[in-house]
């Protein structure tokens, strides 16, 4: 098994593939979080919105990624090879995972803490951003870690429909019946997942220094 020959032959493509893989995994994570925060807040604030939001997002999870990648062109009017399809699909999965976690995280803040904040003169908005959200950071962060790792792995599925990124190594290895490119690809994806995981962990620690023990 030669791990280097494939990498040397495709040295020109590697940077582009890595970049596509990284942004396809990262952008949906950020957009998904930006959408899930207000939705999760809504679900925690108005109890009747919780069951429909959590059920709807749960159903989204049963749709295989490959299916979502090919249905989206029909819904969005995009081309079938368009990377936008992959980005939108992964954003949907991220939102699906995070809405419930954000809602549960915000609801789990003890009423004593909230009363204390109110007694100190915090307005509802200050209380949300200054108390509730920071306390929920470790919980939301843990959900974000799961979403990040699963996003990275799902990007590789997009190579079946021909979106050029690191998953191409699996397809090429399979077509050439050589193990080298496949092992290269597996290493690349696991390393990428670890990097994402590490960065999010770093973010959680920076945003909630008091919760170090809880994370370890």
């Amino acid at each position: 098994m030669n791990l280097w020959s494939y990498l040397q032959q495709h040295s020109g493509d590697l940077a582009g593939w890595t970049w596509t893989t990284v942004w396809l995994a990262a952008l949906p994570l950020l957009v998904g979080l930006a959408i899930a925060l207000p939705l999760g807040w809504l679900a925690s604030r108005l109890r009747w919105t919780y069951p429909p939001l959590v059920t709807a997002t749960g159903i989204l999870y049963t749709i295989p990624s490959l299916v979502l990648f090919i249905v989206l062109p029909g819904l969005l009017g995009t081309r079938i090879l368009d990377t936008v399809n992959v980005a939108v699909a992964l954003t949907a999965y991220t939102v699906a995972l995070l809405v419930r976690i954000v809602a549960d995280g915000l609801s789990s803040v003890s009423t004593t803490t909230l009363s204390a904040a109110s007694a100190m003169g915090y307005t509802a908005r200050q209380r949300l951003f200054g108390v509730q959200l920071p306390i929920a950071v470790p919980v939301i962060g843990a959900g974000l870690r799961v979403a990040a790792v699963s996003n990275v792995s799902l990007v590789s599925v997009a190579s079946i429909i021909g979106v050029p990124q690191l998953g191409r190594m699996f397809i090429d290895g399979s077509n050439l019946s050589t193990l080298g490119p496949i092992v290269d690809g597996l290493i690349a994806f696991v390393v990428l997942a670890l990097v994402f995981d590490g960065l999010i962990l770093l973010g959680i620690r920076t945003l909630s220094p008091w919760a170090k023990q809880a994370l370890a």
Partner: peptide
């Protein structure tokens, strides 16, 4: 296992085991 892309794992096994 969560970090390992299943497509890569599958194709690895196909190329490695199937012959």
């Amino acid at each position: 296992l969560r970090a390992v892309p299943i497509l890569g794992l599958l194709l690895l096994l196909v190329v490695w085991l199937s012959p």
